[in-house]
Amino acid sequence: MKKSKKLLLFAVTLFTAFLLVSCGNNKKSSSSTGTEEKTVKVGIIGSDERVWDSIKPQLKKKGINIKLVQFTNYDQPDQALNSGDIDLNSYQHIFYLNNWNKAHHADLVPIGNTIIAPLAVYSKKIKSIKDLKKGDEVSIPNDATNQARALQLLESAKLITLKSNVELPTPNDVIKNPKKLKITPLDASQTPRSMNDVAIAIVNNNVALDAKLDPSTAIYTEKITKKSKPWVNIIAAQKKDKNNKTYKEVVKAYQTEAVAKKIKEVYKGSTIAAWNYKF
């Protein structure tokens, strides 16, 4: 019996020592700086990956590991953020976020400005927007906010007239259409492909870049004015995380001169860093 007790005591001591060594090793391996590394999942769409990749080393030094999660549909990143599958997303403007929150009874919030990306008109069939003929087809993004923005662009080009005082106009709000243009809403990602079938396509900037469209070939570009403020893109988080210190570090790392230069490089000068922009 005494021998059994000694063996049991020895086994317990050995197991305890093993646990202590294991825990010590795990703590040491968590970070070379001695602090636990935090992984932040950021939902993006398209070519923003190259911009975000440029800030990863800076955040890594602060114990923050950025994991980019690519999406292909505009609705997906907000769904993922709202459900907690990702921590932040960076792809949408303020107007889109507000509209998405309203439609889904959600309370996602902006925690930092990123860029403003003008919509542009592309064509394989005409060289100038003035060359549009009666009955020509125009493709535009079909999500509520970018559809409204595209229609306002057509109005600024004096191609249509919209009802006044409509916050988010739809094709049903066109009251004058002298050229009888056929306006076809499509998923934003499909607008570049539609160029084989339509006279002009109005394309979001990041979608255009992913489709290898050169911004310098656009035949008309949205003007940036004081009215453009709702179209500023943002980093979004859940409301409970709006003051999260780690996420604030992510915003701080993004809003730098080095990132502004990277944005200009990646988007070939067609996109503007918006955190210091004067509207």
Rank of each mutant, 00 (worst) to 15 (best):
K130T: 11
I160V: 15
D214F: 06
P141N: 01
T72P: 02
L159F: 12
G24E: 01
D210P: 03
I263G: 01
N204S: 13
N89Q: 12
K278T: 13
A157V: 10
A11D: 07
P171K: 06
Q190R: 07
I116S: 01
E265P: 02
I160N: 09
K212D: 12
N26H: 04
K41F: 12
K56Y: 04
S270R: 04
I44F: 00
V51H: 09
L151K: 09
G135S: 05
D87N: 11
V174P: 10
F15T: 07
Y277T: 14
K124Q: 13
P185F: 09
K223Y: 00
Y91L: 00
G24R: 04
K130V: 10
P110N: 11
A208P: 06
K242A: 15
T114D: 00
V198E: 02
I44M: 08
K130H: 09
K127V: 02
Q79T: 05
E249F: 03
K226S: 11
I183V: 06
V251A: 12
K252P: 00
P215F: 00
A106R: 10
P118S: 03
Q152D: 02
V138E: 09
H104N: 15
I116F: 05
Q152H: 10
T145C: 09
L88S: 01
N196G: 00
K62S: 02
L59Y: 02
A103Y: 13
A106M: 09
A208Y: 06
A236M: 13
G84W: 06
L213C: 05
K41R: 14
N98D: 12
I200S: 04
K2C: 00
A218C: 08
N165F: 14
Q255D: 08
K240M: 11
I55P: 04
S47E: 08
A208T: 10
N206T: 13
S47T: 06
I183P: 04
S30Y: 09
L68H: 01
L186D: 06
E167A: 14
Y96D: 05
F10R: 01
S189L: 10
K240S: 15
K248C: 06
K180I: 04
T184I: 13
K133D: 13
S128H: 12
A260G: 04
E167Y: 12
I126E: 04
L108M: 07
K252N: 13
K212E: 11
K223A: 14
K5V: 12
A274F: 01
K133M: 07
I263A: 10
I86P: 02
A274L: 03
